[in-house]
Write a protein that binds this DNA or RNA. Structure first.
Length: 585
RNA sequence: GGGAUCGUAGUUCAGUUGGUUAGAACGCCGGCCUGUCAAGCCGGAGGUCGAGGGUUCGAGUCCCUUCGGUCCCGCCA
């Protein structure tokens, strides 16, 4: 091999005349009989190399057999291209390398798919041959953005005295939250470790242990079903601080986020970030992760529907609507599609009326008197050519369905620009959600989240309305970080456990070491965890988390490349004392 | 656990109402070609129509089951 003197993205006009060595992959071959053009590619770019039968002294017949993705090492001279031969689409397009000698480092077998465009192959094939897909420019760009994001995060936090500390990957299974991935213990047969859903307990213990400011870029594992933005193993920027309150978290995390966007994308995010309470976010946007890049806010229309002759909504707990600018163009078919869409979120239907010449037409407009229509026109600030969609039902259904409808319409109407970033903090989450099936409260965030000081007494009197000191950072409709000020009083912690239906014994059994640790001088503390993959997704401008993970899993949590999960030998199982139950089928 | 959708040559796709020998482009193989940059031109090979079952004189096409990919609901922060 000729040790490379330059990369394939490096040579320019100033290098003309120099003898150089390049190593790389054959990106494409253009054979013209007595002259062969090859685009040689490495991580850094592409360079056109030329084999000329007149001047090339080696085996020219072999050169004619070069094919895509062969690995070459070449020696040659950089030369100018004639003006008509310049390729303005390549940064190295003003020069080319006249090859004097080359070594075939590795011949590539015929490829399962052509690497020029990711659409050339279905995703299952690309995932099976992920190493080929990763050679493509688009993925390489994403992987590099990911790398830069790690570096930006580390340098920023380290500069603020945050200490990077690793926490165990083999830990104790804890009951709340997501399903754990379990790891059987060989030494203690019948017992299991769990992989962390997040290093939550460890980072709180580190605060108690005096480490003041901690961070870690860490893999977390959740055995739940996947989504386009959800993988079973994913990465968090995990952060915890002592002697602080919410404002300290907001200031530092905004600083971190601004630093990342500025250094990776050159984008200035607002200072400070706007904030919304959970209640406002739900009422105004129908989501706890609102996308603020567009309006279409949810508006209360119950007074109007109650005053109308439309009886369907009279008994509804809540009636809200959204106005779509120019939505009067929607056909019956469009509206039917959107009706089916909201039915996924348990809405029974989608009522609508179009505005035309200051009055409503179509849909349920005939149930609204002229005066009522006039009042609505003024109050709801609609315009001719708009459409009003309404849902009436239980509050949670109305908000959820309209919230999703809002996002869907923004997508259909292309209201979002992926280079526009609108962060917003969502605060004052409820402490608990009531789980009807289990007939008990479950923690909305997690069981260590502190209630607001003013709400501590409500834990006894009115737990379902207690608000927490939890907060999420939302960006363009994605939750990119979430955290809370933690409980540092053992008494409050035990109270919360009991509300979650954990007896004293169970709480001690499951979280005893943390409860105990809280009694040995726990500082007030709180923290946050960023979804690193989602953050990189947004920075890279993709909506698919697999695009920013080198070796992602499929929707059914398998890896098509290495075929995991897979069977293990009887010996391995035996050592672990594990027997596989026959499947029901 | 549920819903939607996709699966045809190495790859991306087309394939009518069920009807004779399942097509195209790219890739691959062979040939021509000294300025291309998605090179071009000529020729060739290449098919378990995801798998299994059924209906039918006849199934890529209709029905059932099943496997896999993707998106969504539930689930998950």
């Amino acid at each position: 091999m000729y040790k490379r003197s330059h990369t394939c993205g490096q040579l320019r006009k100033t290098n003309v005349g120099v003898t150089i060595n390049l190593n790389g992959w054959v990106n494409s071959v253009r054979l013209h009989g007595q002259v062969v053009f090859v685009d040689l590619r490495d991580r850094y770019g592409k360079t056109q190399i030329v084999f000329d039968a007149d001047s090339f002294s080696g085996d020219f017949e072999a050169v004619k057999k070069l094919s895509m993705e062969d690995v070459l090492s070449i020696q040659g001279a950089v030369r100018d291209r004639s003006e008509s031969a310049v390729n303005p689409n390549m940064v190295t397009g003003e020069i080319e390398v006249a090859v004097t000698d080359y070594i075939m480092l590795n011949e590539a077998a015929p490829l399962p798919f052509v690497l020029s465009d990711r659409d050339n192959a279905e995703e299952n094939l690309r995932l099976k041959y992920r190493y080929l897909e990763l050679r493509m420019e688009e993925l390489q760009k994403n992987i590099l953005i990911r790398h830069e994001t790690y570096q930006a995060v580390r340098s920023y936090l380290s500069g603020l005295e945050f200490v990077e500390i690793e926490t165990p990957v083999l830990m104790k299974s804890t009951p709340e939250g997501a399903r754990d991935y379990l790891v059987p213990s060989r030494i203690h047969q019948g017992k299991f470790y769990a992989l962390p859903q997040s290093p939550q307990i460890y980072k709180q213990i580190l605060m108690i242990a005096n480490y003041d400011r901690y961070f870690q870029i860490v893999k977390c594992f959740r055995d739940e079903d996947l989504r386009a933005d959800r993988q079973p193993e994913f990465t968090q920027i995990d952060i915890e601080m002592s002697f602080i309150d919410e404002e300290d978290i907001f200031v530092h995390m905004e600083g971190l986020t601004r630093h990342v966007f500025k250094s990776i994308r050159g984008i200035d995010l607002p200072d400070p970030f706007p904030r919304l309470t959970y209640a406002d976010a739900m009422e105004t946007y129908g989501s706890d992760k609102p996308d603020l890049r567009y309006g279409m806010q949810l508006q209360d229309v119950k007074d109007f529907t109650d005053a109308s002759d439309f009886n369907v909504f009279k008994s509804a707990e809540k009636v809200k609507g959204i106005i779509i600018k120019g939505g009067a163009k929607y056909s019956r078919k469009n509206i039917d599609e959107l009706t089916d869409f909201v039915k996924k979120y348990k809405a029974k239907g989608l009522a609508w009326m179009k505005w035309e010449k200051g009055t409503f037409i179509g849909g349920i407009s005939k149930f609204f008197s002229e005066n009522l229509q006039k009042a609505m026109f003024e109050k709801l600030s609609g315009n001719d050519g708009d459409i009003l969609f309404m849902i009436g039902d239980d509050s949670s259904i109305v908000l959820n369905a309209l919230g999703h409808l809002r996002v869907e319409i923004a997508k259909r109407e292309a209201l979002t620009n992926k280079d526009d970033f609108k962060p917003v903090w969502v605060t004052e989450f409820p402490m608990f959600e009531y789980d009807k099936e289990a007939d008990r409260f479950i923690a909305m965030h997690h069981p260590f989240t502190a209630p607001r000081e003013s709400d501590i007494e409500m834990l006894d009197s009115d737990p379902s309305n207690t608000l927490s000191r939890g907060y999420d950072l939302t960006l363009n409709g994605y939750e990119i970080a979430g955290g809370s000020i933690r409980i540092h009083s053992p008494k409050v912690q035990e109270k919360v456990f009991s509300l979650l239906g954990l007896s004293r014994e169970e709480a001690v059994e499951k979280f005893g070491f943390l409860v105990e640790a809280l009694t040995y001088g726990a500082p007030p503390h709180g923290g946050i965890a960023f979804g690193f993959d989602r953050l990189v997704m947004l920075l890279a401008g993709t909506e698919n988390i697999r695009d920013v993970i080198a070796f992602p899993k499929t929707t059914s949590a398998t890896s098509l490349m290495d075929e995991s999960p897979n069977n293990v030998s009887a010996n391995q199982l035996d050592e672990l004392g594990i027997q596989i139950k026959k499947s029901k089928k």
